[in-house]
Amino acid sequence: MVKLSIEHLSKRYWFEREDREVLAVNDVSLAVEDGEFLAIVGPSGCGKTTLLNIVAGLLPYEEGTVSIDGKRVDGPGVDRAVVFQHSSLLPWRTIAGNVRYGMEMQRRFDEATMRERADHFVKMVGLNGFEKHFPNELSGGMQQRVNLARALAADPKVLLMDEPFAALDAQTREFMQSELLKIWSQDRKTVLFITHQINEAVYLADRVAVMSARPGRLKGVFKIPFGRPRTLSLKRDPQFLEIEDSIWQLIEEESQKLNMVLAEK
């Protein structure tokens, strides 16, 4: 069953400085199945964050359709939750208060349920004992766990993740990837995961969609054949490296084309 459906989506921006129109997303069609983990990978400026913002309902769109369970996306909704690249935690709220924040804004649960769920998800991301701390007392990796717990606690149908580990150091990032898979495997929500790291996408996702830059077009979708649970050692598997390589080639090809076009100009 298709959960999230994107059909012929295009997004144009008016680029003030150069006084011209830029096509950020060009005719993208993509269907994410219920319970599927789909990653979108592409170089910076390929429109993948624009795409996520549209799905999140934070950006209006005119051409094409985005729908969840057949319902057209028209602004933010309780069926989605976003894990942001910058943890975007309220600095004056404790960890427990931050995990509650999404639920509070959405007003779907009563007080007792909110407390219970906040408690549950703080534990799930491994932060029990830190409930009364403030975000500035936590490391970057821990802040991103809070960010994730806040999204999960809101009980979305689709979880949107916007390069959530991009700002972390390499070691923490690997650790967070395997943590995410562990947490995700507990209730298998539909996930749309944006990243510029190919091996992160291949390691996490059921399918990897590759986007190219300017205009942001969908270049291809790779099905990742590995079963679950996956361990970090998978990243050294020859088949893993092969997939990583073919995605890399697709992106490389594209950027070379772009360089040629630029050189001609």
Partner: peptide, 21 residues
């Protein structure tokens, strides 16, 4: 904070909630 504003909006916060929180 623009990031916080974006997060609040993604969670369907009303203007009054944004003001308050």
């Amino acid at each position: 904070d623009r990031d916080l504003l974006r997060a609040a909006k993604a969670y369907c916060a009303s203007d009054w909630q944004i003001f308050k929180t």
